[in-house]
Structures are given as C-alpha cells and as structure tokens.
C-alpha cells in the first residue's frame, strides 16, 4: 500500500521510500519522512493534489505523485 492510497483521516507507518530522484528523496527524508515514522492524512487540496499530511507534530504538503512512491502499512487505532 502506498501513501497516496490512504483516505483523509487514515494513519499509517512508513515502510520504505521507493523514490528514484535523489533530490526528492533527500528532501522528504530531511522533512522527517523516514522509515518507521507514523503519518496521518489530514486533508486533500480542493484540486485533489497535493495532500496535507501530519507527522512529527507538524503539517507537510506533498504532491500525490511523490506519495505514490512511499510504501506504508496502515495503522488501526
């Protein structure tokens, strides 16, 4: 399952980043999207892209096509 497949309100744990572009991957890592981090999908833009996620106590917006390459495991609270 990837991060783009989650619905608003879903919580998931990051398993792996399958991103080829080094710049994008490093940027996501720098922003705290590392293996094992728990993220929550907060909201989707009215244009359906980008997606607003919450992690490490702050909010981050990432475009859908990058989220597609982030493998996650859904967490049920």
């Amino acid at each position: 399952m990837n991060l783009a497949e989650l619905k608003v309100g879903d919580v998931a744990k990051v398993i792996k980043l399958n991103i080829n572009n080094k710049k994008t991957r490093r940027h996501l890592l720098d922003m705290g999207l590392t293996r094992g981090v728990v993220v929550k999908v907060k909201r989707v833009a009215p244009t359906l892209d980008p997606v607003n996620i919450e992690l490490r106590g702050y909010e981050l917006c990432v475009s859908r096509k990058d989220l597609k390459n982030i493998e996650v495991e859904k967490v049920y609270l």
């Binding site: 572009n21 710049k23 994008t24 940027h27 996501l28 922003m31 980008p50 607003n52 702050y58 909010e59 981050l60 917006c61 990432v62 475009s63 096509k65 990058d66």
Partner: peptide, 9 residues
C-alpha cells in the same frame, strides 16, 4: 523547476 512540491504548512 522540477515539479518538486514538498512544503510545510
């Protein structure tokens, strides 16, 4: 201008 959009809210 790579379509990189990763931004803090």
């Amino acid at each position: 201008t790579s379509d990189l959009y990763i931004s803090e809210l």
